[in-house]
């Protein structure tokens, strides 16, 4: 049975189900308790599970990551929240140098099963220190997994899979997705990590998009369909470890690929995707160069119009797709 839930409700339902099912799962973060989280995602969980399992912390991002790591190392299954992805910069040492590497450094003798949830993205007028999309930093770190769901149903199933996963998972939510609605199956279910999904089938062009950009790519695809351009929209969902095969297969079919993400273009995940495609058999099927549409290489501006221009919008995707289908290699 499915019903409509918002993305935020889907995340909350996943946390609730995991906490009900497994005593080892607990929440830790800033204002996750009575306040219900800065974006209301954990609303009601404090009332249901109490202060032992829904733990408000001081503003101490390094120790939030440290607690998640230490508790996971010794038998618990923490879900940590970093209130804005920007603040994850204050947790980097524990995440990158400890959590990610412990298992390997200790010869495979330990596990560090925690999930670090964090809202990313611009579009809220919060300017340069509350709007970043830093996912690719973590993609670069062996030992971490990076998950970025685009729909409520994916958010729920992928979060439950992340909580079950024996590794540290950076789970990136998007602030503008929190209020989006979609059909979400009831009850406990997981969507396996590292499973790319084709969100829309098409023959003329592949768009590989992440997070909010999947939603925008699907909207662009509607517009393009009216012009006779059939777009295939592919969502990796898990950025690391990446399930590349469906992406490669799609590009082999369409011969054209546009990569869309919100994070700054230079050093972004799009470069990795482009390289994966270029190194694969899809290279021989390309009818046009691989194109990337991504955030401008600037800090996120405050001004509404400047902020809008910084991040790919539906019309930008439509334009880029139109140009690409006319291009020849």
């Amino acid at each position: 049975m499915s019903r409509e839930l918002t993305y935020a409700e889907a995340v909350r339902e996943a946390i609730d189900l995991a906490m009900a099912r497994d005593e080892r799962v607990f929440l830790i973060g800033e204002d996750v308790g009575v306040y219900g989280g800065a974006f209301g995602v954990t609303d009601g969980l404090y009332q249901k599970y109490g202060p032992e399992r829904v733990r408000d912390t001081p503003i101490s991002e390094a120790v939030i990551a440290g607690v998640a790591t230490g508790a996971a190392l010794t038998g618990m299954r923490p879900i940590a929240e970093i209130q804005f992805m920007d603040f994850i910069t204050l947790s980097m040492e524990q995440l990158v140098l400890q959590a990610a590497k412990l298992r390997f450094m200790l010869g495979g003798k330990v596990q560090v099963p925690f999930v670090l949830r964090t809202p990313a993205g611009a579009g809220t007028g919060a300017a340069a220190q509350h709007s970043e999309s830093l996912e690719n930093w973590f993609v670069h770190v062996p030992g971490l997994k990076v998950v970025m769901p685009s729909t409520p149903a994916d958010a729920k199933g992928l979060l439950l899979a992340s909580i079950e996963d024996p590794n540290p998972v950076i789970f990136v939510e998007h602030k503008l997705l929190y209020r989006t609605k979609g059909a979400v199956p009831e009850g406990y279910y997981t969507i396996p990590l590292s499973q790319t999904e084709v969100k829309r089938v098409g023959r003329d062009l592949t768009i590989v998009a992440t997070s909010l950009m999947v939603v925008r790519a699907l909207e662009a695809a509607e517009t393009l369909a009216k012009e006779g351009i059939e777009v295939e929209v592919v969502d990796p969902r898990t950025l690391k470890p990446l399930d590349a095969e469906p992406i490669v297969r799609s590009v082999c079919k369409t011969g054209r690929v546009l990569i869309v993400h919100e994070a700054c273009k230079t050093g972004g995940f799009g470069g990795e995707l482009a390289a994966v495609i270029a190194e694969s058999e899809a290279f021989d099927y390309l009818d046009a160069p691989i194109r990337r549409l991504a955030g401008l290489d600037i800090p996120v501006p405050y001004n509404r119009e400047l902020e809008r221009r910084m991040v790919p919008q539906v019309e930008d995707i439509v334009d880029a797709a139109r140009r690409l289908v006319k291009e020849a290699r």
């Binding site: 733990r55 440290g66 607690v67 190392l73 010794t74 923490p78 524990q94 140098l97 400890q98």
Partner: peptide, 23 residues
């Protein structure tokens, strides 16, 4: 639970281990 190459690297984790013991 391990030596550490980072000065104070184990210190935040200790709070997590302590919490884990308590919970």
């Amino acid at each position: 639970l391990g030596a550490n190459g980072i000065v104070a690297g184990g210190v935040p984790m200790a709070a997590g281990v302590g919490l884990s013991i308590r919970m």
